[in-house]
Design a binder for these strands. Structure first.
Lengths: 216, 216
DNA sequence: TTGTATTTTTAGACGGGTCTAAAAATTTAA
DNA sequence: TTAAATTTTTAGACCCGTCTAAAAATACAA
């Protein structure tokens, strides 16, 4: 239906749309580590196929169709990640690259059967919601630890950074999905955060606090 | 490691090598439904990468490396077919196209884990052997029903034609892998074969007899 | 063995996706 | 409000895999 490259552009635009209404050429180029000129070429192509709204110099947004396609790619990605972790016992920091390839397998019947096989999971191994076959899902309502008040208490429920370096660090500190934590103190000097978890204190840097999401 | 197209060429050459020592440009073109000139271009490229032995006008054969790559693609294809049938409950005539896409997922770790997850199966849903992680497998020693003597008796163990039309026909006639059959008679007029299976007689055409393999 | 048919290769072109370099539009700052 | 900086687009090129048309090599047949 769509080429691998088109799918990757749609996914990138969707992701960026979540943090900014209008997505710029340069943002897309950065996200896909490609050049702005390449992006412009592809935007023209996607606009022609009615997958995005695009006028020169004005940035882009997904059309209804484009959004549907993007959500479907994300569904496939997250279902395969779930499969890799739950069925093949990969660790949560090992699955991203593989899922990047697998998300382009086109059969919807396959994905629906996979979904059923795994019991219709609603969250992937990183806590991100898995859209159902209709594309419906509830967006996470989570906050980075860096944004909550002292004495706030919540459940670790997601990450903003999916890099294996970050995930491995979290794993090592046992800062995994489902853990209950309390924010004890925020050091004003460098925004280091002191957490309590399992009755122990734990220090995390500003960057980590920024990328670790909790449900209050 | 290799592009999708390179992998498809290697697989095609491997397949054709099983029935003819030296594989011609035209045979490959037919197998991949492309043009001879395109094949020539790709052969030069594969030869440069030391995956095939190629001299102009002389046809090609796989190098040791090329064969290893080809067998690995076949391993991936057959493991995914097994997965689709055994875990996701697809029918044996539905899985070929999906597996054609999935065989190009590159991670060997993934394939080895999948293999383990399914208990190291040795045959795919069509009876073809699945190479192990070292690339070892025993080639089937099967005969088409059209090539055995009257009164011969054996177990249906494979097919030569993997088209869904053929597989659906077999399914309908219950001529599936594992069934025990006896060749009762061969009509000399048109080589129709009369089989006995489950104490019932069954007629199959010359073409069907040619594409249905049994272990004696 | 010589001519014809077939197979294979070459030459040149095209589309998809990418790049660099330069031009155009937009934004920011003086 | 004009100049400078930044962003975006265009122009032209390249690589990959493909194609058509034509040339070259090989195989077949009289």
């Amino acid at each position: 239906m769509y080429t691998l490259t088109e799918e990757n552009y749609l996914k990138a635009i969707y992701k960026l749309s979540l943090v900014a209404e209008n997505v710029s050429t340069n943002r897309i180029a950065a996200e896909l580590t490609t050049k702005a000129s390449s992006v412009t070429d592809m935007l023209r192509k996607l606009a022609e196929k009615l997958l995005i709204n695009y006028t020169r110099y004005q940035g882009v947004s997904l059309t209804k169709t484009g959004e549907k396609v993007a959500i479907n790619i994300i569904r496939r990605h997250r279902l395969w990640e779930y499969f890799l972790v739950e069925k093949l016992h990969f660790k949560w920091d090992e699955v991203h690259e593989m899922a990047e390839e697998m998300e382009h397998i086109s059969s919807t019947e396959l994905i629906d059967r996979l979904d059923e096989f795994m019991g219709f999971p609603t969250r992937d191994p990183h806590g991100d919601p898995i859209p159902d076959s209709q594309g419906n899902f509830k967006q996470n309502d989570l906050k980075p630890i860096s944004a909550v008040d002292v004495n706030a208490c919540g459940i670790i429920s997601g990450v903003r950074d999916h890099s294996s370096a970050f995930l491995q660090y979290l794993e090592k500190q046992s800062l995994t999905i489902g853990k209950k934590i309390t924010v004890k103190e925020i050091i004003t000097y460098d925004n280091t955060v002191i957490l309590q978890m399992d009755n122990k204190d734990l220090q995390i840097s500003r960057d980590v606090a920024n990328n670790l999401l909790i449900a209050l």
